[in-house]
Computed example of a mutant assay.
Amino acid sequence: MDVQSLAKLPFNLKIIPTTVDGIPAGLPFIAMFNPESFSVHEDLVWNRPCPPGKQGSEPTYVKTNPRTFTIEFTLDGTGVNTNGVKIPVTAQMALFRGVTTNIRGSIHRPHYLMVQYGTFINVCIMNSSNVTYTMFDMFGLPIRAKVSATFTERTIKGLSDVLGMLSSPDLTHRKTVKEGDLLPLLTREVYNNQHYYIQVARVNRIKNFRKLKAGTELFFPPLSKK
């Protein structure tokens, strides 16, 4: 590999095996070439009830599914990027599969993964990969291939608990009023129910909840367990 390519290697796409807690636990797969494309998909689930005889209704938020992302990159065995040293595509594929899809005896499943490319860092699992061989030598062995791999984002358990706590209606929240804010809508953001706005107004000693002063800090107490 030439000096320029070697200098860029630390910035190339890396797929790193990890423990369930997201700690690196093995040698990474480092792509020889950076991705040709990189796409991220986000999927929000909404409940859209429509009573009989009605044309439509207001969707209500249910959940946000984990993000999925797809990366496409090239494997090359011609030596074009390695100063003429030909690394067989079959060997590169074996390294890729060793990190992503091979069953690990100690955990009885493929590795948990971390994908890192530039500023994108994501703990995830791999859903699928598709390999298209595009060039062959005189013996019919592949010397170039395109890989398309799809991953699903993971939220590590401890982090998931923290994120859930930060948005929980069972905790105290404070919000700073912005111009145009309405108390029922702020209440809905915190409790997922706007009907508590009268109690919030009482706690904050608000006489006219229709005219909130911008810059005011409002206190949203935790909901009663009852």
Rank of each mutant, 00 (worst) to 15 (best):
F29S: 00
R48H: 13
N47E: 15
A149C: 10
G84H: 03
T155I: 11
P221K: 08
F209G: 02
S106V: 03
M126Q: 15
N127I: 04
G56E: 09
F136S: 05
A25Y: 07
D137W: 06
S167C: 01
N192M: 09
F29C: 04
T100I: 05
L223T: 08
I30C: 11
E36T: 15
L223H: 08
F96P: 03
Y133S: 03
R174K: 14
E72Y: 00
F209W: 14
L6M: 13
R109I: 00
G158W: 07
S5K: 12
T19E: 13
G180R: 11
G22L: 11
V115H: 05
K225Q: 14
T64N: 09
V40S: 12
S160Q: 15
W46N: 07
V162Q: 13
M93A: 06
L166P: 00
L113M: 12
G164P: 03
L159I: 07
F209M: 10
R202T: 11
F96A: 06
N130T: 12
I125C: 04
F33R: 14
F73L: 03
T187M: 06
K175V: 05
N130M: 11
H195Y: 13
K207Q: 13
P110S: 04
P51W: 08
L44H: 13
M126S: 12
L163A: 09
I107V: 11
G98H: 09
K86A: 08
G84N: 06
K207D: 04
L75K: 01
V45E: 14
P222K: 07
L212Q: 01
M126W: 02
T18I: 07
E36I: 14
T134N: 10
L183W: 02
P184F: 03
E217D: 09
L218W: 02
F29N: 01
P222S: 10
